[in-house]
Amino acid sequence: MADTSQPSTSTKEAGSAKLPPELRYIQYSHALEKKYLPSIRALISKDLSEPYSIYVYRYFLYQWDDLCFMAIDPKTNALIGVIISKLEPHTTPSQASPQTYRGYIAMLAVSSQYRNAGIATTLVRKAIDAMEERGADEVVLETEESNVPAMKLYERLGFLRSKKLHRYYLNGSSAYRLVLHLKSVADMMGVREDREMEMERQMQGQGQGGVGVM
């Protein structure tokens, strides 16, 4: 794959749970880096097969800190789960389809003893809600083909597998790309721009020129 080369998500929903009564979900921000980045890294590197350097974390967190959410134990302030994502315009290499405003879920992890309690699902929903609020057209991600719980989680929310990626991960296993359209294709960003340009052209053609487009 030339375009993206990214992380897997792991939410093996097994394990026991002595869940704290009220979990706290908070949005990450730069101010929290000192406090939480080390535990984010620790949590993710424990669960995901893919090793990530600090640069990978910074790549996401510097640009899209508002799309990172954490589940915190209110008593101990310990990190229980985290999701890291990004959102940016996306153009397919072939130019075959229009540009979209595409969300991407890079990493998702929940501490093993708290699994099977819907924490991962809540984190994903928070990330998708935040993306939707910012006008995302679609959300994509990759997950290891062997990670059935993660695939089930995403498919329950509405994701579809769009393609399989051969030997995607360093450990040699393949991945599925999962896609969720938040809008119908006709309402997506690139298409709308085309339409506006078309309208503009028509108006100029009619000699009415100079009509602004919002």
Partner: peptide
């Protein structure tokens, strides 16, 4: 079918049929 709160049949149809759209 799973509940799929973020999706509907039509949007999934569009994802699936994307290669045939053109």
């Amino acid at each position: 079918s799973p509940p799929r709160p973020y999706s509907d049949d039509y949007k999934r149809y569009e994802v699936r049929m994307k290669p045939f759209q053109l």
